[in-house]
Nucleic acid binder design. Structure first.
Length: 416
RNA sequence: CGGGCCGUAGUAUACCGGUAGUACGCAUGGUUUGGGACCAUGUAGACUGGGUUCGAUUCCCAGCGGCCCGACCA
């Protein structure tokens, strides 16, 4: 993509009503546009990032056997009345049609997936099964806050699983827990699987996945030696205590942001919708269900919060909107322009996604924009680099600037 | 939902009971060109509705909208 035709432009100042770092940077760099409190549109750059995160999530969910589908977002109120959530869950948006029919806009999809599953699950042979979707969710939050991290509309991956025994559920649960940790790692984040309350429909503990960041809304206690971590709301330990899990480490307290949650739904929804299967003996049984969520758009916000520096966003390679940011410092020099055009073309032929800053603006502005936008690798072509016989390569996250000979540039980029 | 703060060009801001000034942006021309350069000209604004007043962007009330703290958070 040539930056001269990129739809969005950067800006030097953030809107005064945005305090959250993620929103300030994402707006300044042209990734998102705020529609209203808690609702953002994702512009071309932002859409690319979301899609890259989705791709990682999709791969990991497929790897544990998840099958992707896409459910309706407009839900019949009847399904929500049937589970009791119509009255019990106050963040559900409720709307009324011209003919006074009532609907819910989906904030999660247990009420939809369970009736769907009822059509296809009849035997223990149909289990286990895991179904997931990625899409917009709506929650009637009393107070949206923290930029894209807590909105009324957001993107979430939600997976639902069905099992014929607690043991099988536990097996799958632990598999998904590992898959989640891989998702966060691939997104450049160190997440902690954190013990937390199971929410309003289960007494059991669930796991929340937490990323340490001051922008977070949760307080967690974690062991500085082993992987034990718990939300303070359920923790029996205090800051400074010796970890009861490993008996070596010390418990630390920190702010964190929740980027995923997995929990045991038991047989609640199966019973609400009379979803049963026949076991080996021919008896009717209710399956055990699990629910597994990852906030896609929140994850994007957390990545910005956790990795950005004073100059702007710093994307990990895995989610960056482009592989490289090619910057030409031509100042009207037609040779430089021709060389940069040629490199841009060749990079694309080698499969690299490149943002090519071909604008006729000064170097300082190009560099400042590149730093704000946060693409991990910057390539510079100028009279200087041509004279030196190479391309200047630098990393957004710091480190050296190196001059790489053109003959080896593609090899070089594949390695980093 | 309780409490607080706030609505002035696209963005950030200033002043003011007598109809708004600056910077950035944008447009045109010129000089520039490895860290947001400069000159000139131009463009564009008081959230909405009431009230007070000779006169309201300014004061008062309401609505709408935004942010923050708390509560809440499937």
């Amino acid at each position: 993509m040539k930056q001269s035709v990129l739809f969005t432009k950067t800006r030097k100042t953030a809107p005064k009503d945005e305090v959250a770092k993620n929103a300030q940077l994402l707006i300044r760099a042209g990734y998102v546009h705020k529609e209203m409190a808690g609702v953002y549109s994702y512009l071309p750059l932002g859409r690319r990032v979301l899609e890259n995160i989705e791709k990682i999530v999709r791969e990991e969910m497929n790897a544990v056997g998840g099958q992707e589908l896409r459910m309706a977002t407009l839900h019949p109120s009847q399904n929500w009345i049937q589970t009791g959530a119509w009255d019990a869950v106050d963040v559900v948006f409720k709307i009324k049609s011209r003919t006074e029919k009532e609907y819910t806009i989906g904030q999660s999809a247990e009420e939809i997936i369970t009736p769907i599953a009822k059509e296809y699950i009849a035997s223990y042979k149909d289990l286990p099964i895991a179904l997931y979707q990625i899409g917009q969710k709506y929650r009637d939050e009393l107070r949206a806050k923290s930029g894209i991290m807590r909105g009324r509309e957001f993107s979430m991956k939600d997976m639902y699983s069905f099992h014929d025994s607690q043991e099988d559920f536990d097996r799958f649960y632990s598999q998904v827990k590992d898959a989640y940790l891989r998702v966060y790692e691939r997104c450049g984040l160190a997440a902690k699987a954190t013990e937390a309350s199971g929410g309003s429909f289960t007494k059991k503990l669930s796991y929340e996945f937490m990323v340490l960041t001051d922008a977070g809304e949760d307080d967690i206690l974690y062991c500085d030696s082993c992987s034990f971590c718990a939300n303070v709301e359920v923790s029996t330990q205090k800051e400074g205590d010796t970890c009861t899990r490993c008996t070596k480490g010390t418990m630390k307290r920190a702010k964190a942001s929740e980027v995923g949650n997995i929990f045991d739904l038991g047989q609640k929804y199966a019973k609400d919708f009379s979803l049963t299967y026949k076991d080996r003996e021919g008896n009717e049984q209710y399956p055990i269900m699990g629910c597994f969520g990852i906030g896609i758009s929140r994850l994007m916000g957390v990545i910005v919060e956790a990795l950005a520096d004073e100059k702007g966003i710093v994307w990990p390679k895995s989610v960056s909107p482009f592989h490289a940011h090619l910057v030409s410092l031509a100042s009207g020099n037609s040779q430089v322009i021709a060389e940069a055009d040629r490199l841009y073309q060749e990079l694309r032929e080698h499969g690299f996604e490149v943002l090519y800053d071909d604008r006729d603006v000064r170097a300082g502005e190009k560099f400042a924009d590149a730093e704000l936008i946060g693409i991990p690798t910057r390539l510079v072509i100028s009279e200087k680099t041509i004279a030196a016989g190479g391309i200047e390569v630098s990393s957004r996250s710091g480190g050296d600037t190196t001059l790489v000979p053109e003959s080896t540039i593609f090899e070089h980029l594949k390695k980093i």
